[in-house]
Write a protein that binds this DNA or RNA. Structure first.
Lengths: 196, 196
DNA sequence: GCTAACCTATGACGAGCGTTATAGCCAGAG
DNA sequence: CTCTGGCTATAACGCTCGTCATAGGTTAGC
């Protein structure tokens, strides 16, 4: 179907250049569909297209998480980082995360921003739920989940700037060890680090 | 001086909307200087202006790090996160990090991207050096530094999307505890988590 | 074969963009 | 005073943007 190609194409362009630099004309061209079709499928214009692109990307990652978290939080985390590693390396450090891209562009589109927030929340919630299932307290689970998602997103951006995969691999290794300790060591399970 | 206002204004707009959505006309207007002056001060055009804006922002953070790391890596980390927390909350979740913004826009400007990479590298290096001074092995220090910078950058973006400061605070708390353990516990100092 | 619904094709609209050119101002040096 | 050089002011260039309108085609049901 043509509509789906437009959405995935838009997501691809957004994760490379950001939302503002992604024009509907180029999305249509990239998808091999005429410009008019874009407004036929997405009467809401660029806002609707961006929103659906972010939702599609978020759900794609979510499905991977759902599948891999069945084997436990550490396996889910590894799959999460492997996914980003593949995107970054396969594109020669040119692509990142469309959800992040939309998040840092003020006034780009309130609806797309909400979709991005939903995406982040979904990933964090999935990871936190898995951690809880493995004995981690709810507060600590949420805290660790926020750390994992944040660090992955930030590391992808760092890798793109430095044109090196090292930051992502370093972060993955540290977090793998941290989650392992939190789920395996009974003494760690309920330790919520004090703030401030 | 007018030139400095243009640079800081550009950095402010970039951290809010991203590089592509930041026009020279609006930067000039925001700085109260005519459009022609921009090309007088920055004959390299938007590329030069963006590069200097990123450099200025990176150095500003770097100076804070230099000052606060004198009291140790944990104090430096806390100051690092306090800085981002202030930016995010003061602007009502509308501003983030210009270095990150430039990093995720493909083809935006190779020179500005290099400046962003230099910024990330500088922050990581400063943090890693401080960790080494407190007994952490070089490899682990680099690994932890990458985690701290990545997580902070990612958390800022997450907070903007979700319009909540929670992710940043959670991440700060986790990392504070992690750095504390790495520097205080002799058994942790040389533990580099295995990758993969 | 006719009709209706979906999709395509094309062009136009006003606006903003980066950039350049050119003319004018206005301080301070001689 | 004049002159010069740093800065301003203004207009224009070609381009792309998001959006809309309108006409053409193509396919399925009757």
């Amino acid at each position: 179907m043509s509509r789906e190609q437009i959405v995935t194409g838009a997501a691809d362009m957004i994760r490379r250049r950001g939302l503002n630099a992604t024009s509907i004309r180029e999305v249509a061209k990239h998808a091999g569909t005429p410009l008019g079709s874009t407004y036929h499928y997405f009467p809401g214009g660029k806002t609707q297209l961006a929103t659906e692109a972010v939702q599609w990307a978020a759900e794609t990652v979510s499905k991977v998480l759902t599948a891999k978290l069945r084997k436990g939080p550490v396996d889910g985390l590894k799959a999460f980082f492997a996914l980003w590693r593949q995107i970054v390396t396969e594109t020669g450090f040119q692509a990142g995360c469309p959800v992040l891209a939309v998040s840092i562009e003020e006034n780009a589109s309130p609806q797309a921003l909400m979709a991005a927030a939903d995406g982040f929340r979904a990933w964090s919630a999935q990871l936190a739920a898995s951690l809880e299932e493995h004995g981690v307290s709810p507060a600590r689970a949420r805290s660790l989940a926020h750390l994992c998602v944040s660090a992955a997103e930030g590391a992808v951006a760092m890798c793109r700037a430095e044109r090196s995969i090292e930051p992502l691999d370093d972060v993955a290794a540290e977090l793998t060890a941290l989650l392992h300790a939190a789920t395996e060591d009974p003494g760690m399970r309920h330790t919520v680090p004090t703030r401030g």
